[in-house]
Design a binder for these strands. Structure first.
Lengths: 172, 172
DNA sequence: ACTTTATGTCAGCCTTGTTGACTTTCCAAG
DNA sequence: CTTGGAAAGTCAACAAGGCTGACATAAAGT
């Protein structure tokens, strides 16, 4: 029902390019804007109660995703300066949500782990986000979801796409 | 860990729900994060040269999209306070990118238009954004794009989805 | 010994969001 | 005609979270 109406109008070669018009692209651009706002809305509300912001959420997410990751790894993934990340990390460690352990092989490195408390907040945040995404996925159906993921991956910076999805694609 | 196991693994009703596992949802969440960063990267680079930020881009985009829109309309779409928007709008008017005309029917309202200069910057910004999106669309193909749009629309806040897409769906 | 790497920290700046208070302009209802 | 309230603008103050630059420390690597 989402337009695409007259696609494949002329029986030319079967490959209609109507989905590449500026108008279609503009709609995609605005959809990204509005969807991203919805995407972050629920966690943002939760974070307010805890006096944290989106930056804390991102750190918590990726520490949970890769327990024991180093500060440098996190820096590369998040794409911010160490000063920015450090400010966030410091408050999380002070508040007992994140534990920072000195590395064993390389003692310069700090390995980051969520504490019980950190895991608890992470679950609260990610459950809210998953709930919205699950509803969207369910309403859209598996084929739409596959397309969604495909387009998003194409929209990422290419180096990131490779460097990043090469590790995670392991499972089916 | 939180895998929800193999959801409905057996060939029960043909409707596999594997795309709704927490793992799949997590991948979607991260894809949103990385894709949005790519999505904003090109305009951000351009804006740096002009001493503007993302807030200016958003204002310019929606004024271009609906010439003559009022400040209040813009406020509703962007979801920020009038003080925030006003700061951005003021610089754009001062710099001659946006013209603010007093309303004819209701003289309290200000109707916003891009000047030639504003149109020029808008084009530069949106062309950069469209180029990336066009590449992603082309690589993913029309079916993936349809799914992409469907999921994004489901992810928006429901009121916004209706209030907003009811106006735009008009033209086919 | 010297250099490089990983991390942390201090200080200061910018953008962009927020609240609160207040004014001006103007439409419209009493 | 007066007055209430909506629309818009402005000022001030503040916070989050980016940034740069400079500097400190410890541990590796050469």
């Amino acid at each position: 029902m989402a337009e695409r109406g007259a696609a494949q109008s002329s029986a030319s070669s079967g490959e209609s390019l109507l989905f590449l018009t500026d108008e279609q692209l503009r709609r995609g651009i605005e959809a990204m804007f509005f969807a991203y706002r919805g995407f972050t809305a629920d966690p943002d509300r939760i974070l307010e109660n805890h006096a944290y912001g989106r930056a804390h959420h991102r750190a918590i997410h990726f520490i949970n995703r890769s327990p024991g990751t180093t500060v440098n790894n996190l820096l590369a993934i998040l794409g911010v300066t160490k000063q920015s990340l450090n400010r966030v990390l410091r408050t999380l460690v002070e508040d007992g949500l994140v534990e920072s352990r000195v590395g064993t092989r390389d003692k310069r490195e700090r390995h980051l782990y969520l504490t019980e408390q950190g895991i608890s907040l992470e679950r609260e945040l990610s459950e809210a986000q998953r709930t919205r995404m699950r509803a969207a996925y369910r309403a859209a159906g598996p084929d739409a979801v596959a397309g969604f993921r495909t387009v998003l991956e194409q929209m990422m910076d290419p180096e990131l796409r490779h460097h990043y999805f090469s590790n995670t694609e392991g499972g089916a």
